[in-house]
Design a protein around this nucleic acid. Structure first.
Lengths: 203, 203, 203, 203
DNA sequence: TATGAATGAGTGTTCATTCAT
DNA sequence: GATGAATGAACACTCATTCAT
């Protein structure tokens, strides 16, 4: 018995197929060097169909960027909702979660890097990222402050700690393109934590 | 008295003018969205002249990438030649130097990020960067080891420390696109140092 | 009542329109001096369309050369199928047919000459012509031999007769570019026949 | 002792070097696909020098075509000056001479074919060839007529015989691109002669 | 809704020609 | 006279987008 899907569900699935094909190819080839025809082929549809679901190549890129961002955002904005406990524990868990997220969403992260590298080309998307960063700074602020009060974290401006943490997250993706052993992620987590406070004991 | 330049000197200057124009535009617009005609205009020459000095748009991009890399390399490979003293001092000075370098070579760093984001598109250049990273790891190794023996640095694999340091350097450029107060660079330096060992005192 | 054409039929027609325009212009202007835009204009399509039907200017030239050759081949290879009777009759009819063919396919013959004039530039096409010539030599061989046995034809190697016949056919096209009276073709036929054997009586 | 050359002689030699390089390359690559820079390289001069001796690429092509033609002309126009004796002997010797000429001036003949193939592109040069053909027809006329009166030659219009003879000469160059045994030239000579009259005995 | 043929603006590259040295 | 750097018109080809079927 084949599953009965409503027309709307079918459309949603096809749209999503195209979107995923686009994420893959945009991340590999960049905006300019990705051809709509290739996306269509990857998605298994005719390239006319791409334009049925997305107004233009540009609009598709925006969707590719914005839609996954919403999901990722929750792990960066609603920190105290996702991670509970002592500040040190919260930060540890958060870093674990983010590092795992970044290691899994490899392709999507390249899209982010592309946008970061071209602020003038993608101003709308770039501003979304700025908002994202600022939202994270605001959101992580009480956690760091609490940690500082308890003497766990460095007495730095919380925004500096937040930004340097985002830097290392982003930078790792650039610097460790090929490596992806779970081992490594564990170690990286430890190094990221050291931007918050001195962690001398191993493990 | 007008300066007398030999033909060879003139050619060198013109080549360099084109190269600099190319760095500017490639970094702003990426490889694909930079037009050779724009580079020519920026350099103040006809676009035919660009092809007198560089075989193709691609070859120009390679030169744009490789030539400044040679210069930057010296500050990452010949560490003990540039920075002397106690391990902690060496690392502090090195980070200062690198952060300053990165803040000054803003445009060139975008080129590096473009290459990092497209390993399959620019395999030759990407491998150059890999060599660069490995060279740095080898070169920094004795310094970190000495610091570890003195109890200043974390007991981590030196390659992990080196890589996480490169990550934050790279990531900063992505995360702090617009900001460039000297204040900030000072603070960043401190955070970078914390990947090597616990630095609790300010300044 | 307008004719209902399937999409495939329409495509075939359009392809053929482009091919014919290309034959005309390539024959007039040669490969290098024919612009794809001109072919498109002559065919009444946009030049983008030319690339929908042919991969490149070069591929179009190959099609222009190869496709009509197939048709012409039949009159040179399947000689005993097309022309029946006494050897002398066969050759007379064959020459008539070939001369007529050559006078009608004026444009196409120039393409052949271009290829003959540039063996290194069009090696694939040139080899096709070589095969064609050799096929003719083999095919005409029994006819000439029979004629020789009957005493009608010169006792020369059949390949020499065949080649000299092809030479005069080809050469006529070069030497008599402008002339095309039916009178002339009749006379030429007679001269061609004289390469096979002595024809002293007029008409 | 090195030979002392006047400046004028040196110039003549250099001009001739360029001209010969041009014959070689134009014949191989055609007008459009031959680059002036290549001709210069082949001649061992800078390409600026080519323009010192010839006004333009086009003018060089004209010289390449016209200057050797003058030399060849003499063997086609001044027939009775070069070849003496009975009409049959004159024609035999002439054909020998022409065939030899054509087999030696391979490259130049390709230039002629290029011009013949593009009457509209090279009208001036094409007309030169027309004049050449007509000159030959006029010049050979009395010889053929004499041969006809003696019963050696076919009773065809002398212009037809002349033209068909030129056709086979030209065509051979096209049809036998690669072959060049002296054997073959001997045989071809015999076939060419058969356009004038019936030659049944071998040798 | 899905398709893919048609379109033509846009771009890298070539190369004859000029001209300052 | 000889050179070759500079120029820019010209052209093949790509590809996003449209639209008839």
């Amino acid at each position: 018995m084949e599953p009965k899907l409503t027309i709307d569900e079918k459309k949603k699935i096809k749209r999503s197929t195209i979107l995923n094909a686009a994420i893959k190819l945009y991340s590999e080839n960049g905006f300019a060097e990705t051809k709509v025809a290739e996306i269509a082929k990857e998605a298994g549809v005719s390239f006319g169909t791409v334009f049925t679901y997305f107004d233009s190549k540009e609009a598709l890129y925006e969707s590719v960027f914005l839609e996954p961002l919403e999901e990722i955002k929750t792990y960066f904005i609603e920190i105290e909702k996702h991670f509970k406990g002592e500040p040190l524990e919260v930060v540890k868990e958060m870093i674990d979660c983010h590092v795992q997220l970044f290691s899994m969403r490899n392709e999507y992260l390249r899209i982010i890097q592309q946008v970061l590298a071209r602020p003038d080309r993608f101003p709308k998307l770039f501003n979304e990222l700025n908002d994202f960063v600022n939202g994270f700074i605001v959101s992580i602020h009480p956690v760091i402050e609490a940690g500082q009060r308890l003497g766990y974290f460095y007495e730095e401006p919380t925004s500096l700690i937040a930004k340097s943490y985002l830097s290392i997250l982003n930078g790792m993706r650039l610097t460790f393109v090929d490596e992806s052993t779970s081992m490594m992620w564990k170690e990286i987590t430890r190094q990221a934590l050291r931007l918050f406070g001195p962690i001398t004991n191993k493990g």
